[in-house]
Each structure stands twice: as C-alpha cells, then as structure tokens.
Amino acid sequence: MQIILIETFLDLMETRNFNRTAERLNITQSTVTHRINALEAMFARKLFARNKGGTQPTAAGLRFLDHAKALQHQWHEATRAVETAGAYERSMRIGLQHDLAAHYA
C-alpha cells in the first residue's frame, strides 16, 4: 500500500470534499478520485458515499480511519529511523575513570 493513498484518504476524511482535498494536496481532483478508487479496490469496499450533498465516509471508511492514522504514523517513524541510520556510525564512546581523565585531557 502506498502512503500517498493513506494521506489522501485522511485528508478527504477531514475535508469531506474531493476538490478541497485536491487543492490542499496540490493535485487534481481526478488524482484524488483515482487514489480513493485504488484504496476502495484494495478493500473491495466503498470508503466514501459520494452525492450532491457532499462526501460522507461509509462504515468501512470509518473503520479504516484509525488504522490509516496508525499507518501514517508508522510510516513517518520509519522514515525518521532510516534518515538517522548511520548518523553515529563513525563515532566512538570511551569510558574513563574520573581520576585518570585529568591526566589524559
């Protein structure tokens, strides 16, 4: 699953409007539709009910919401972990008795 699909889903849950989500994510409305359709195809369930009155989450969409938030959080945690990997790769920590430290400083 692509994180961009999750982020689009979460934004749409907040705005309840495909056009507003498109504006906020700086993409086209058709891209938002495509991403949501891709998620719905993965689950074989509609996540949103679309009508003239707006966009409302279905029961499946509401059930997926907490999982989507957790997936997004885990993705950001993984990204931070990978970014900091190797940051201390070439450092060394040495322990020394306090009374000897003055002699070697």
Results as ranks from 00 to 15, higher is better:
1 M>E: 06
2 Q>M: 11
3 I>M: 01
3 I>W: 01
6 I>R: 01
6 I>S: 00
8 T>D: 02
8 T>P: 02
9 F>H: 04
9 F>D: 06
9 F>S: 04
10 L>F: 00
10 L>A: 01
10 L>V: 02
12 L>R: 03
12 L>Q: 05
12 L>C: 08
13 M>D: 04
15 T>V: 06
16 R>D: 03
16 R>A: 14
16 R>Y: 03
18 F>W: 01
18 F>K: 06
20 R>Q: 08
21 T>Q: 03
21 T>G: 05
21 T>S: 14
23 E>I: 03
24 R>Q: 09
25 L>Y: 02
27 I>T: 10
28 T>V: 08
29 Q>D: 11
29 Q>R: 12
29 Q>F: 06
30 S>V: 13
30 S>I: 11
31 T>G: 08
31 T>N: 13
31 T>H: 11
32 V>D: 04
35 R>P: 00
35 R>H: 14
35 R>K: 15
35 R>Y: 14
36 I>N: 00
38 A>E: 15
39 L>C: 05
40 E>K: 06
41 A>R: 15
43 F>I: 03
43 F>H: 14
44 A>V: 13
45 R>H: 15
45 R>E: 15
45 R>K: 15
46 K>Y: 08
46 K>A: 13
46 K>D: 12
47 L>I: 07
49 A>G: 07
50 R>W: 03
50 R>A: 15
51 N>P: 07
51 N>C: 04
52 K>L: 13
53 G>A: 13
54 G>M: 01
54 G>V: 08
54 G>D: 02
55 T>N: 09
56 Q>S: 12
56 Q>Y: 11
57 P>K: 03
57 P>I: 01
60 A>S: 15
61 G>I: 00
62 L>D: 11
62 L>P: 01
63 R>V: 08
63 R>E: 12
65 L>V: 05
67 H>M: 11
67 H>K: 12
68 A>E: 01
69 K>L: 10
70 A>I: 00
72 Q>T: 04
72 Q>F: 04
73 H>C: 07
74 Q>R: 10
74 Q>S: 09
74 Q>F: 07
75 W>P: 07
76 H>W: 12
76 H>T: 10
76 H>L: 13
77 E>P: 07
78 A>R: 04
80 R>D: 13
83 E>I: 05
83 E>V: 05
83 E>N: 11
85 A>T: 10
85 A>F: 10
86 G>T: 05
86 G>D: 01
86 G>C: 08
87 A>I: 10
87 A>H: 09
88 Y>K: 08
90 R>H: 07
90 R>D: 12
91 S>T: 09
92 M>T: 06
92 M>G: 05
95 G>Q: 10
95 G>F: 12
96 L>A: 00
96 L>P: 01
96 L>D: 01
98 H>N: 14
99 D>R: 07
100 L>R: 11
100 L>Q: 10
100 L>V: 02
101 A>K: 10
101 A>Y: 08
102 A>H: 13
102 A>N: 15
103 H>R: 14
103 H>D: 15
104 Y>G: 00
104 Y>R: 04
105 A>E: 15
